[in-house]
């Protein structure tokens, strides 16, 4: 019984804690994220199933969350009112959020913590900007404004603490270096909106994108004229792509077609490793455990949180 219902709140994102192998964060919203409140859940895997540790409520919807890399109790959420909420699970619920960073003009939709320079993080928003923040400041350090449409995804390069990539509704993927004033690379990666991007954890040059055109594409930033590979299989927009923390060639994805899929990119023509159709609504969040190989988690608008090892059926 490795699933938990969150009645009335559909999950938008899930992330395994980098510190505790049994702890996960799940951001959630009401009514398909169109109207209503949000909740930031903290859940715990126990031998008897998934249990809820606590949740924090917000007035607007929550679209994404990310654990802090330097403090095991800190947790960041992207809020539909444009703010970023910082939660401290060590404090009482009444003391939370410990910070609300209000700068984005429209819904914040993605947050990503830097893996090496552990006090800084990124946020992206529908207001077309990306902002760089540090824990010790209440205002943003820098704003990256080049995209012309919502920036749906942003991701730090795990091997270069200054390099990041962003995926936007303007159909471009951009790479940035914090030391450089403008973007360092623009890739017209898809003909449709790009909803997600992620860096390979072993190869500093490799990026994956997921798009409304239902494909996942693999890019080498050194030669970005054509994709390294195109992974077809999803039947609707790909909401999230993530590289495996354990295997250089494994990618996981979740989609509006309600499935979660695993891919092996070594043979792009025959990449699909597994398809999980346990969700009964849009699958919006997906993550792979850092502590245990092939332990997967997904959330969706069907108000369900699933955590399962990749060989088993999530519903079992």
């Amino acid at each position: 019984m490795n699933f938990l219902k969150t009645p009335g709140f559909g999950g938008t994102s899930v992330q395994f804690s980098p510190f505790f192998e049994t702890r996960l964060a799940v951001s959630a919203c009401q009514n398909y994220g169109i109207v209503g409140n949000g909740r930031q859940y903290v859940i715990e895997l126990t031998p008897n199933g998934i249990s809820e540790v606590c949740y924090y409520e917000t007035n607007s919807i929550l679209l994404d969350c990310s654990w802090c890399e330097c403090n095991e109790n800190l947790l960041l959420s992207a809020d539909g009112d444009g703010s970023l909420k910082l939660w401290d699970t060590a404090c009482l619920p009444a003391a939370n959020p410990i910070a609300s960073l209000v700068e984005h003009m429209s819904d914040a939709c993605c947050v990503d913590w830097n893996l090496q320079r552990k006090n800084c993080f990124l946020s992206s928003s529908w207001d077309t900007t990306i902002k760089l923040w540090t824990l010790d400041r209440s205002t943003s350090f820098r704003t990256f404004a080049e995209h012309t449409h919502c920036v749906y995804g942003v991701s730090w390069n795990p091997l270069h603490p200054d390099v990041l990539a962003s995926a936007s509704g303007d159909c471009t993927l951009r790479c940035w270096d914090v030391r450089s004033p403008a973007s360092i690379l623009v890739i017209g990666a898809h003909d449709s909106e790009i909803l997600s991007c992620d860096w390979n954890k072993y190869n500093e040059f490799l990026l994956a994108t997921g798009s409304v055109d239902s494909s996942i594409r693999l890019w080498d930033v050194r030669n970005h004229m054509i994709p390294l590979a195109v992974l077809d299989g999803h039947t609707l927009a790909v909401r999230r792509v993530k590289f495996s923390p354990y295997h250089e060639n494994v990618i996981g994805s979740c989609s509006y077609d309600m499935t979660v899929r695993l891919w092996n990119t070594v043979i792009p023509q025959n990449a699909l490793l597994a398809t999980y159709d346990h969700h009964t609504e849009f699958a919006a969040g997906f993550d792979m455990s850092l502590h245990e190989d092939y332990l997967l988690a997904s959330v969706g608008y069907d108000d369900c949180i699933f955590v399962w090892p990749h060989t088993s059926d999530p519903r079992m």
């Binding site: 169109i34 109207v35 449709s192 909106e193 055109d213 039947t235 609707l236 927009a237």
Partner: peptide
């Protein structure tokens, strides 16, 4: 205003594709 914007974003994500090759005909 929020509601309208969010609906638009969601509808854009669910936009049917003009695709050249797929299993759907």
């Amino acid at each position: 205003e929020n509601i309208v914007r969010r609906q638009q974003v969601l509808l854009e994500h669910l936009r049917p594709l003009e695709r050249s090759s797929t299993s759907l005909v």
